[in-house]
Write a protein that binds this DNA or RNA. Structure first.
Length: 259
DNA sequence: GCATATGTTATGAA
DNA sequence: TTTCATAACATATG
């Protein structure tokens, strides 16, 4: 699930659930989601800390506290939910943070592909050092450079987090479809116009997906037809094509998205 | 058993 | 050095 818009939602969940509150109790129910830190130290270092305002970079969520920073990555199936402490645990609730008599933040994740890190000042830089600029606030010129200076396919350029942080498989397909660019095109060979359309449509798509809290499966969007059998393009009605591009399942319209 | 899944990363090859 | 394809990670669903 999680791409930039989902992580942005988790950021608001974190801030509204736990922002300004003190961690009363940490429970690590599955150590498999902890990285580089033991369950004992994780608890010890976070209990008693107060959550400050959190930040997001790409698909990373940075939960600042008056102590260490908690870094969260949601892989494909992670989420952050706000519960009451007495609510039944979900089988995939891996770590819980009790932040009040009535509030408990839970890191819930089925597949445990990523998880939680604990970081002091420089550790944050080290963990996020390889991330490219965030897709939600990159400027037009920088975006242009990311495409022109890069070898390989345009879809790969969009979803490579070290190039541009935040876009995932669904968003990339949606943006390429809106901008009418074939996902297999070489990034460096796009025209100035195509790069301009990609930038504008990336901004639009990311903005409305953030407002929706996720990449919305609207029928006017390509994303709304990903799972259709015999899916057709919501713009021209042509049959959509699916295949693998840059190693990921890809859906595109061979009529609208020309090479 | 097989294929699929919105993410990342190690590995070997081009 | 960069980029690509592939497998791996852990788990569920069709």
């Amino acid at each position: 699930m999680p791409e930039l818009p989902d992580v942005e939602t988790f950021r608001t969940v974190l801030d509204s659930c736990a922002g300004g509150r003190t961690v009363q109790r940490v429970e690590v129910r599955d150590t498999g989601v902890l990285h580089g830190v033991s369950a004992a130290r994780f608890r010890r270092e976070l209990e008693g800390c107060r959550f400050a305002e959190s930040e997001r970079h790409g698909k990373w969520l940075l939960a600042r506290t008056d102590g260490p920073t908690l870094l969260l990555h949601f892989g494909m199936t992670g989420q952050l939910v706000c519960c009451r402490p007495d609510e039944n645990l979900h089988p995939h609730d891996r770590v819980t943070f009790t932040v009040g008599d009535d509030r408990q933040l839970r890191y819930r994740d089925q597949r445990k592909l990523k998880g939680l890190w604990l970081a002091g000042g420089e550790d944050v830089e080290r963990l996020l050092g390889s991330q490219g600029p965030d897709a939600a606030d990159i400027g037009r010129n920088d975006f242009d450079l990311l495409l022109t200076q890069r070898g390989g396919g345009v879809k790969s350029a969009l979803i490579d987090q070290s190039n541009l942080a935040g876009l995932g498989n669904l968003l990339a397909d949606e943006i390429l479809w809106r901008a009418r660019v074939d996902p297999a095109r070489e990034a460096g060979r796009l025209t100035k116009e195509e790069r301009g359309r990609l930038y504008t449509d990336m901004r639009r798509t990311v903005r409305s997906a953030v407002r929706a809290g996720r990449v919305p499966p609207r029928k006017t969007w390509l994303t709304g037809h990903r799972d259709d059998t015999d899916a057709t393009c919501p713009r021209c009605g042509e049959k959509l094509r699916r295949g693998r591009v840059s190693g990921r399942s890809t859906v595109w319209c061979p009529h609208c998205q020309t090479g």
